[in-house]
Structure formats: C-alpha cells, structure tokens
Write a protein that binds this DNA or RNA. Structure first.
Lengths: 180, 180
DNA sequence: GCTTAATGTAACTATTTTTATTACATTCAA
DNA sequence: TTGAATGTAATAAAAATAGTTACATTAAGC
C-alpha cells in the first residue's frame, strides 16, 4: 500500500465520524406496473361494449379504486390513455403497437431519478474506497438498468393484448366443448 | 364481445367479492448489492496490509457493523469470500474475474423466487382478463429480468477493482502534485 | 338547471419491507 | 485464559407502498 493509504489506516483503522444520512428515492418495481398493463388489457377487452370505470377496473384487478385512479392519472399524463372526467370511462390513446412496456414503466414511475439500484447513500469520504465508489459504480449500474429498459422497449401492449385475447378465446372454446 | 364475456358483464359490471389478499416477496434492489461490491473493493484495497473486519468495513461504508456481518455471511455462503471467525477479517475466495455482478446480486438475495416485479397478487378469477393476466405477463417479466441478469454477468469484480485502484491512484498523484 | 355518476386528489391509516441497534453466545489466536 | 471478532436472535426504527375515507369537481342526460 502506498504512503497516503497507510496514513489513513494509521488513524485508527476506522473512517468513522460522519454525520447521519438521509435516504430517498424509489427503490422497487411497484405493482403499479403490472396493474397498469392489466388496465390496458381490460380496456381493450371490455371497452368496446362497456364504460370502463375505475370501479370496474378495481374489481378485476382487486385493488382499491383510488389506486386505479392514480394510475389512470399517470397513464393519462403520459399520453397513453384518455380518461373521461365527469361521465367516466377510460380508453387507449395510441395504437397498441406504439405503447411499449418501457412507456408504461416510466409513466407509472417505477423508477425514480436515482435509478433502479439503492445505493448506500453516504460512504465515508475519509476512506479512499468510499470516496470513489460512486465513480466506479454509477456508470455500471446505469448500464444494467439500460439493458433492462431496452428489453422493455421490445414488448408492446399489442403483444400483451393479443395473448390475452388468445387465452380468453381458449377458455370460451373449452366451455363450449364442455357444454356439448 | 362473445356470449361468455357478455354474461360476465351482465352480472353487474363488477368482479368483486373475493377474499382479501396477502403479499410477499422481495420487491426492491437492496442496497445490500452496492454494499457488497464496496466490501470487495475494500478487501482488495486494504486486505494485504490490514485485517478487514466488519467494524472497519462499516466505517468505510457507513452502515451498522451487523449489516456488514449479515452481508459477509451471505457472500461467504455463496463461496465468494472467506471470513475468519474468532480472529476476524475477510478475504476474497476466488479470482476477481470469476466473480460477476450477478454472483453478488444473487448472493445477497436482492431478488427472491417471485422475481423482480411485484405482481398484484390476486386478480379476480371472475374476470376473464384477471384469470389470464399471469399467463400473459409472467414470461415477459422473466424475459426482462433475464436481460438485466445477462448484463450483470458481463461485469466482474475485476472491472470494479481496477477502476477503484485507478481512481485512488489519481487521487494520490494529485496530492503529490499539490505538495510539490 | 338539477341530478347522477364518475373522476381527481388530499389527508390519513395500515401494512410491509428494509435498515439499524442491542445483546450475547461462540470462536479463534496469542 | 483473555481479548477481539464473528454469528445471530430479537427488537426497534424508518421508509415505502398500498389502502381508505372524504369530498370538491366535472360532464352528460333528463
């Protein structure tokens, strides 16, 4: 080890004595994401024949209607859906193949400005490793998050909804067979 | 809409009436991951000249020593490090280029069996969309998580530690210049 | 215009998860 | 045998997410 590091170590083998740290940021991939996709599938499935309200969606997804309204609000703010204020009901605002998982993911704020990884906030600046760990890691964490987001861009609501209708069709055909 | 769906809808435009739901699973990418990588960098930087104890690591990372010990325990269980019980101190158990981010990520259990995404647990089984949403989504969520994990496999502790030493060297060279 | 049904949101509570802390038995080396 | 360190249980504190209640606002139909 060189002299500078040795000097640090000699100070008592400890870098302690920093102030307490606050934390912040979104750290998890919220169920808002899967709920949002569920919402799209419901609007597509039922929207032609029925008004799709937050109450209705809540009963399919089994969460509180206010949760649904908040997510609807976020999807609306991102320009992905329309929501009819007084009379009620939601509809999809864009062609399904132009809405990617990443669009939805970002709309519902599963990832904040701090990124996907929760970094221990205040490594010691008295330690040479602590001082530099952010420089070393930040770019690589971004790289990983980027890989994930690129994969999310490959999947669209069209894919999901095609599969959904396929499964539903399978169900009703089975039911018809059982009746016969 | 076909007859089966219409029948469902006619029941009152709602799929309500299911039991309450429990939740489970790891939902976030814990700071254990960045802490673990920080630990490797510290062992590499200081391990040759000093005993690297949980107390020492805690003072560089600025978290409680018990948190460090738990993470050391997980890294040890995964065969990535050795920890000396009575006398103290940790060391790295494998060549640095054979320890990937994914190894570390899995060792510290950032992702549980349920996967990275938090799925709303009990969509209504009275709703055709609710009944099938898991079939539709599970595979695609795995696909996204897989992309992330493949990227994590590309990065090794060797990369991180080379960068760390590079930054530290830069610091000490700067300091030398300032003294001159 | 009045009524009705729905959205938009604020305020608050509850639940869950994560992180921190205290305490102590266990271990190993000198 | 002593001392310094790990391993871990039990618990507390903090943070984040989700759930709930309440109500003002909005739009459509009568």
């Amino acid at each position: 080890m060189d002299k500078a590091l040795s000097a640090v170590m000699a100070e008592g083998l400890s870098f302690s004595g920093q102030e307490k740290f606050e934390r912040s940021g979104v750290m998890q991939i919220s169920s808002r994401f899967t709920i949002a996709i569920h919402i799209f599938a419901c609007i597509d499935t039922f929207g032609k024949d029925h008004k799709v309200t937050s109450e209705f969606l809540a009963s399919s997804i089994c969460v509180n209607p206010v949760i649904i309204r908040r997510i609807l609000g976020q999807l609306k703010a991102a320009g992905l859906i329309h929501v009819q204020r007084g009379s009620g009901g939601a509809s999809i605002a864009r062609p399904l193949n132009e809405i990617t998982f990443l669009d939805v993911y970002r709309a519902v704020e599963c990832v904040g400005a701090e990124g996907l990884f929760h970094f221990h906030k205040h490594p010691s600046d008295k330690c040479p490793v602590g001082r530099n760990i952010h420089h070393v890691l930040d770019g690589r964490l971004d790289q990983i998050q980027g890989a994930m987001e690129r994969e999310m861009e490959k999947i669209t609501m069209d894919d999901v909804i095609r599969d959904t209708q396929h499964y539903i069709k399978g169900e009703t055909e089975n039911a018809a067979l059982n009746e016969a």
